[in-house]
Design a protein around this nucleic acid. Structure first.
Lengths: 72, 72
DNA sequence: TAATAAAGAGCCGTATAATGCACTTTAAAC
DNA sequence: GTTTAAAGTGCATTATACGGCTCTTTATTA
């Protein structure tokens, strides 16, 4: 299972803020190795990992009702 | 770390659809034990677990920019 | 009260996420 | 080309999520 949209949102946000993986890892308390894996699309992170990253990046995780009208 | 909003969204959505934990577990491919733990606020689910549940419930995981204006 | 259904919890083996460390690759600056 | 910073990867260890099984708790309904 892969999570491209999520990953790309995080990565794009980090880059927009001009933060390195190393800095984000430190700020968020997530291990650098874990962040690297996540951003390179490997693995299956836990919610707390995502949450920590999102927090520092000023993002929040939400669940919205999927629009099924005319979905593929 | 706890994830009340996420949990409650999932739970509320499941109940709105009148699906039991058992049925949702089957439909989503998530173990019943895992779902029970998640809904009762224990543990730290992986992204794939959340994704599977969200899929079946017609929800999608998104990251939105937090509104910091006048935040607590 | 008894029966039933749904949810919660303990035990526990297996799979894998999280992490550190060292090394490699990429890309930009000079 | 060389230097340097950032990103990606292999390996190994530890922590923990996943999931089945069983039992308990909590409604609900007859």
């Amino acid at each position: 299972m892969h999570f491209k949209p999520l990953i790309e949102t995080i990565k794009a946000r980090r880059e927009a803020l001009r933060v390195t993986q190393e800095a984000l890892a430190e700020l968020s308390g997530v291990g650098l190795r874990t962040l690297k894996q996540f951003e390179s699309g490997k693995g299956n992170p836990t919610l707390s990992t995502i949450q920590k990253l999102a927090d520092v990046l000023g993002l929040e995780i939400t669940l919205k009702i999927k629009n099924t009208t005319g979905k593929k």
